[in-house]
Design a protein around this nucleic acid. Sequence first.
DNA 1: GAGTTTCAATGACCATGGGTCATTTATAAC
DNA 2: GTTATAAATGACCCATGGTCATTGAAACTC
Lengths: 227, 227
Amino acid sequence: MVIETPKLKGKRRRAVSADLKDRRRSEILQAALQLLAQQPYDAITMSSVATAAGVAKGTLYLYFPTREALFLSLLDEHYAAWFDALDARLRRPGLTAPGWADWITRELAARPLFLRLVALLHGVLEQNVPLPETLAFKRRLAQRVERSGIALERALQLPGGAGSRLLLWLQAIVPGLAQMAAPAAPLRAAVEADAELAGLLIDFATEMRALLAAVVHGLQGKTETLS
Amino acid sequence: MVIETPKLKGKRRRAVSADLKDRRRSEILQAALQLLAQQPYDAITMSSVATAAGVAKGTLYLYFPTREALFLSLLDEHYAAWFDALDARLRRPGLTAPGWADWITRELAARPLFLRLVALLHGVLEQNVPLPETLAFKRRLAQRVERSGIALERALQLPGGAGSRLLLWLQAIVPGLAQMAAPAAPLRAAVEADAELAGLLIDFATEMRALLAAVVHGLQGKTETLS
DNA sequence: GAGTTTCAATGACCATGGGTCATTTATAAC
DNA sequence: GTTATAAATGACCCATGGTCATTGAAACTC
């Protein structure tokens, strides 16, 4: 009954070498990123990612064990880029505490997709990823936190351990503040139109800078509260 | 073929009055809370909530428009209780900044389910709730933030506006810190067993107290960063 | 370069769970 | 007792994450 589907011959290019596989993996991540820029995370289906990447749904599962693992990989890449930028900044001399708070704020504000991904990390992405994958992710993260933490201590003359502590805190603060400052589009519109809700409307950059400055100030002073 | 199901007669008690409806609603929320104490949010299905509450699945949708709305209501209740406790504490005199940070920390640590719910707020609960519901929730929240904020300013002698600002920041900080300190059970076990990941293991109370102290300190000093 | 092997790619299919709605029937109203 | 109302039900719908038997591109063999 059903007419034989054309079976699109010649369209199946197979990634055989490790290099080709890496490339295909990147293509998939790229497609997912593109979709994330256009719609909320929940609205992105695996089918849509597959279509956007020009592969079949099943192919996605050749490269990522679950949907969450796919987006965790995406976050992983962004984390790496973020730490690269941070390290580069810390290598340049003449950094003050408020200057750093300012730099961090601007840098984060310029990476809205990174912020959205980070916000999903605990509640969503870690929920359905095979444990080894999650651990590998956390291990990479821990390494970079420690390395950059040391550089940060040097740059801001913080007591030992305060650098990584500060970066850790940053991870706790940033997603919350970002979500509060930038709720989903329809919600944002409604909140803006409601006078009673004015108190909940905050500006990410303003709050981030103030909060960070206070925290750094606290860390520079009382070292006894640390480990 | 299929044997006629007994149709459990006499078991269907109908909530007719507003009072009875409220009670049934509470029963459902109570059941959901119980389940949340036993398993992660993702693992809780509407069917399981229905069974636990002793009603049919369809009944849940008589009281809550979506799954997320149900849990948002649960969070709403906990928020109210939390602010009640906060207000009561602020009414008692003789509160210092570190004393307050300490009280907040202990109070939060004693409400793990509240922490888990708060952590779900932005990423999950707000995603699939009818806009009016979400707005009502936010309005209640904004009111209590403002009211308690004023009391807080008085108690800690903070500059005007700093009280609600502080409570707002608290909402950004708390869930992140809580998630970082208390990941899902299997993950936690694995992290604890891995020396490389020691840096990511933090104690909620310790970090919360230190962070809060720093923030309050910052707010008491520089008032110029505030609106 | 014909034959053989390998395994990336596919998409029909499955299972699950959120959400719906025609039907049932407890309760109120008379 | 009869009728009207609407709370409760659960079979059903359907979207979506994930699987796997099958296909066929590329590598390998002789």
